[in-house]
Simulated assay, not measured.
Amino acid sequence: MNQNRYNAYRIMWVIVLFDLPTETKTERKAANLFRKKLIDDGFTMFQFSIYMRHCPSRENSKVHIKRVKSLLPKYGKVCIFELTDKQFGNMELFHGRKEIEKPKASQQLELF
């Protein structure tokens, strides 16, 4: 196996941030459906309206970004971006004033 294949600059995180309207029953339904489809695609909640997904490569992250774009609701704001695993590792997380651990990367089986 090629060691360069799994380095911190090749492994990617896809982050989806969204602010969707929820004033009407239809808007709430659309927002919940978008969130559910993110979860179905392997995203996990990082904070309210912020979901993230670990991807083994930039090519794989592009697949998931394309999928998220196909799920976009009619109204609201959605931001999608990628971070390398190295950049993600430099993040500092706090709950109040106490620093907390970063989420662990999921172990993902890749089949060819």
Rank of each mutant, 00 (worst) to 15 (best):
N90F: 08
F34I: 04
C55P: 01
K29C: 09
P103G: 03
S70M: 08
E27C: 06
Q87N: 09
S49K: 00
E110V: 15
L109D: 10
D40V: 10
Q108D: 13
M52F: 07
Q108K: 13
P73F: 02
F112E: 09
M45T: 04
R28T: 10
K98V: 12
E59L: 13
R97I: 09
K104E: 12
T24F: 01
D85W: 08
K36L: 11
R10V: 12
N4Y: 11
I80P: 00
A31T: 03
Q87R: 10
K69Q: 14
P56C: 07
E92I: 06
Y75R: 14
D85G: 13
L93V: 07
D40P: 07
S61D: 02
I80E: 01
E101P: 03
R10K: 15
N2H: 08
Y51E: 03
S70I: 05
T84Y: 01
Y51Q: 01
L111H: 06
N2F: 06
W13S: 06
A8E: 14
G89E: 03
E99G: 04
K37A: 04
K25F: 05
T26L: 12
V16L: 02
P21I: 02
K37S: 10
T26N: 11
Q107G: 14
F43V: 03
G89D: 07
L20S: 04
E101Q: 05
K98F: 07
H64C: 07
E101N: 13
I15T: 07
L93W: 05
E99V: 06
E82H: 02
L72Q: 07
K98R: 13
I39H: 09
Q108F: 09
Y9H: 14
D41G: 10
K74Q: 13
R10A: 15
